[in-house]
Simulated scan of single mutants.
Amino acid sequence: MEKPRVALIAHDKKKIDLIMFVKENIETFKFCELYATGTTGKFLREKLSLPVNAVHSGPLGGDIQIGALLVEGKMDFVIFLRDPLTAQPHEPDISALMRVCDVLNIPLATNLATAEALVVEIKSILKSSEL
């Protein structure tokens, strides 16, 4: 089985939360093929030394690039820690990404609680592929 392909995205006020979450679950994420939008990918590489395929930052089309990977069947999970209290100039792109996840039945976590649930599923997939 291929490595689980996971997109990691975080709004500015949620980037530290995402970095800490990935750090806490690094034993799982190091066995995944990781993708991230620009700055998030840069932080994951610098802070955690993880190999990450980075696309553009969200406001520059990164959310749409992740959406395209979803449509092409090249993504299994999306963890997108959103800041629901701050307006985003690229909100239409964010909505499109979430819509693609819904249409294609791609698991999408938008907060730490649902991200934890996705990690449980990813661990299960990794464990079953060892058999």
Rank of each mutant, 00 (worst) to 15 (best):
V103H: 11
N25D: 09
D83F: 07
V52S: 01
C32A: 10
L44W: 00
K15Y: 13
V55H: 01
L8Q: 10
F21N: 05
E46Y: 03
E33P: 05
V103T: 13
T110N: 12
L104E: 12
R45L: 05
I79N: 04
M98W: 06
F31I: 00
H90P: 05
A68P: 01
P107F: 10
D63Y: 00
I26A: 07
E46L: 15
I26L: 12
Q65R: 05
F29A: 05
H11D: 06
V22D: 08
V78D: 07
P51H: 08
D17Y: 08
N111A: 13
A109Q: 07
K15S: 10
D102I: 04
A87K: 13
F43P: 00
T40W: 02
G67N: 02
L8H: 05
V22Y: 12
L70G: 07
G61R: 00
F31S: 10
Q88Y: 07
I106C: 09
I9L: 15
A36R: 00
Y35N: 01
A36K: 02
L48M: 07
K15A: 09
T40D: 05
V100H: 04
E72D: 14
L48T: 08
I9P: 01
H11A: 11
L69T: 05
D93T: 03
F43T: 01
K47T: 07
V103S: 11
E24N: 15
L97C: 12
V6Y: 06
T39H: 12
L81Q: 02
D12Y: 06
I64V: 13
E24H: 12
N25Q: 08
F77R: 02
L50P: 02
E27N: 14
V78T: 11
D93F: 03
R45C: 03
V55R: 00
D102F: 14
V100G: 04
I19P: 02
R99Y: 09
M75H: 03
A10I: 07
F77W: 08
F43N: 09
I9V: 15
K30H: 07
Y35F: 15
D102S: 13
P107S: 14
D102K: 14
A96R: 06
H90I: 08
A10W: 06
Q88F: 09
L112C: 07
L44P: 01
P4N: 09
D12T: 09
A68C: 08
A36H: 00
L108I: 13
S95G: 09
R5L: 15
N53C: 04
V55S: 04
P84I: 11
F77L: 12
E46N: 12
